[in-house]
């Protein structure tokens, strides 16, 4: 399975993402620059964390207009898995691929520490290797992860199982403890915590690896035919 790791000016979790795919999952990862023109050769698109374009104006607001983003939108429309982590999630929100917006953390602090997430929906291509209500340890590292959406959107997310991860102990003030959401079609997921930083016990947790394993298993089931 071929994974594209999109690199914007200011991305800084691209190497972690590459490592998770290439070394821990054992699949093929390729860095794709923000100014490239095609994602046709990839099976999944990963938008890593960092501070794209310095997060000037608002997190993700400038990155969403990078040339590669029209290809990300196209991949999403084609049904390819698109995963946005941290700044990648913020970019997906700004691009309108996921609903809502991010505010500064409630306590106004940049927080970098492991948190406990609760898997709310394991019936997605990103989470099928988890159990529902499973508690997992994944690090967060953000200053603007206070997820907000209006009441109508929240109700829609709740009623359609689109809240995929919640915080057990809400660190940032996110509405309804939301840590990660998925689009209606089920192929675009955004989350603030960093599964790519939790892919080996040496890193403190390997709970994030199951996300990438879920993606791989689901892709194989739909793309690889056995003789």
């Amino acid at each position: 399975m071929k994974f594209a790791v999109i690199v914007f000016p200011g991305s800084n979790c691209d190497v972690d993402m590459y490592h998770a795919i290439q070394d821990e999952l054992g699949e093929e990862a390729t860095y794709v620059r923000y100014d490239e023109q095609s994602l046709a050769n990839y099976d999944a698109i990963l938008l890593p964390g960092g501070f794209s374009y310095g997060d000037y104006l608002r997190s993700g607001s400038i990155a969403r207009f990078a040339p590669i983003m029209s290809e990300v939108v196209k991949a999403a429309e084609e049904g390819k898995p698109v995963l946005g982590i941290c700044n990648g999630f913020q970019i997906l929100l700004e691009a309108g691929l996921l609903p809502g917006a991010m505010k500064r953390n409630k306590n106004l602090k940049f927080m970098c520490r492991p948190v406990t997430l609760v898997v709310q929906n394991n019936a997605t291509m990103f989470t099928s290797a988890y159990e529902n209500s499973e508690e997992i340890t994944i690090p967060i590292a953000h200053g603007e992860g206070n997820y907000y959406c209006d009441d109508a959107t929240l109700e829609e997310l709740q009623s359609s199982g689109r809240i995929v991860f919640t915080y057990k102990d809400n660190p940032n003030g996110s509405i309804d403890d939301i840590a990660g959401i998925i689009n209606e079609k089920g192929n675009v997921l955004g989350m603030m915590p960093h599964p790519e930083r939790a892919v080996d016990h040496l890193l403190g947790s390997a709970d994030g690896l199951k996300m990438f394993k879920s993606l791989l298993r689901n892709w194989r089931e739909s793309h690889v035919t056995h003789a």
Partner: peptide
């Protein structure tokens, strides 16, 4: 398009 995020 850019200067404001009209969601918030």
């Amino acid at each position: 398009k850019l200067l404001a995020n009209t969601v918030i």
